[in-house]
Amino acid sequence: MSDGVKKQVPLPFVYTFTAGAIAGCTELLLLYPLDVVKTRQQLDTSAKGAGMMETFRNIIKLEGPGRLYRGIIPPLMLEAPKRAVKFGANGYWGGVFTNNGQTKMTQSLAIVTGFAAGATESFVVTPFELVKIRLQDKKSTFKGPMEVIQHSFKTHGPLGLYQGMEATFWRHTWWNAGYFGTIFGVKGMLPKPESKQAEVMNNFISGTIGGFIGTTLNTPFDVIKSRVQLSGTGPWSYPGLYQVAKAEGFGALYKGFAPKVLRLAPGGGVLLLVVEALSAVFRKQLGPPYI
C-alpha cells in the first residue's frame, strides 16, 4: 500500500557521474594548494613537524609560489572521474539499497551507501594519487607525471601504480561513509527549506559538516597512504596506524589535518552545492519520474 509520499527516482548514472565531475574540478581549482601543504606535513616523519602556516610559508619562500600547484595535472585529470565516480557510485548504490527509490533512505543506509561508493572510488583513484604524492614530495626530482609512471613501471611493473591500494580503500570508504551519512543526518535536523536560498544554505551547511566528519575519520589512513605511496612499501593500514602512533605520537596520525579539513570541509559544501544544482537541472530536463 502506498503511504502517499511521492518517491523521487534516483538519476541515471551518467547524470550523477557528470554532476560529480564538474563539481570535483570546481573544488580542486579553488583549494589545491591546501592539498600540497597537507601532503608535505604527512610526509614529515619528525616528532615535531612544521605547522600548516610554516609549511605554507616555507614552500613559497624556498621553492616559489608555483610549487603550490606542482602535481596538479594528475589530480585535475583524476578529479573528473574521481568525483564523478564518488557521486555516481553513491547514486548507483543508493538505488541498489533502496530498490530504485522504492525503499525509504535512512541514515544507516546512507552510511552503507557511502562506504560502497568509497570502495568503488578507491579502485579509480589509487594510480593518480601515487603520481600526485611523488610529485608533491619536497625531495621530488621527477619532471612530470609521465616520468613518475615510467619509473613505477620500470621498478615495480604495471601494478606498481597500485601501491597503497589498501590504505586508499580505507581512506575513501571512511570518508564517503562519514560524508554521505552526515549529510543525511544534518539535513534531517535542519529546518525544511522554504526557498531556493534556504535550500542552497542547507546543502552547504550539511556538505561542510559532512566534509569535516569524513576528514576526521579518514586522515589517519591518508597519512599511511601518503607514506606507502611515496616509498613504494610499508605496513598494512591498521598495523601502520599503531606503528606511527608509537614512533611519533598519536598526533602524528593527524599530520596535515588542518589544511586537509580547511580544504575538504568547505570543499564538501562546494561539492554538494554544485552536484545538487546540476542534479536539479538534469531532473527538470528529464521530467517525471525524476522530479
Rank of each mutant, 00 (worst) to 15 (best):
K61N: 04
I60T: 07
L76P: 02
A80P: 01
K38S: 11
Q41P: 02
R70Q: 11
K61Q: 06
A19F: 13
A80I: 12
Y69W: 14
A19Y: 10
L76M: 10
R40F: 05
T45C: 11
P33M: 06
K82E: 07
A19C: 10
G71R: 14
I72L: 11
E54K: 10
L68E: 04
K82S: 09
L31H: 00
L62E: 09
I73A: 14
L31G: 01
G64F: 05
T39M: 12
I72F: 09
T26I: 15
D35T: 13
A23Q: 09
L30W: 11
G20W: 08
L76N: 02
D35L: 14
I22E: 12
L30D: 01
E63Q: 04
L43Q: 05
V37A: 05
T26V: 15
G64T: 01
G20D: 09
L76R: 02
N58Q: 00
A23P: 05
P75Y: 12
G71A: 13
L34S: 09
L68Q: 07
P33C: 06
I22W: 13
K61Y: 03
Y69Q: 04
E79K: 12
D44M: 06
N58T: 01
I22V: 15
T18F: 15
P75H: 10
I72R: 03
P74D: 06
P74C: 08
R83Q: 08
L28R: 14
M53P: 03
A50E: 00
R57N: 06
V36T: 07
L62C: 06
Q41F: 05
I73L: 15
P74M: 07
I72W: 07
G51W: 07
M52E: 07
E63F: 00
K48S: 11
A47M: 10
C25W: 14
P81M: 02
L68F: 07
A47N: 09
Y32P: 09
L43W: 03
P33Q: 08
T55N: 02
A21P: 13
V37T: 10
S46R: 12
A19W: 11
R67W: 00
M52V: 11
L78I: 03
E27Q: 15
I59E: 04
R67I: 00
L30I: 09
G51N: 05
G64N: 04
I22M: 15
L31T: 01
E79Y: 15
L29Y: 10
T18D: 09
L43M: 09
Y69E: 04
Q42S: 10
T45R: 15
P65K: 00
S46L: 06
R40N: 02
K61T: 01
I60L: 07
T18W: 14
S46F: 03
E79D: 13
L29E: 08
K61R: 09
R57P: 01
K48D: 09
G64P: 02
M53W: 12
P75M: 12
L78C: 07
Y32S: 11
R40Q: 03
G71W: 13
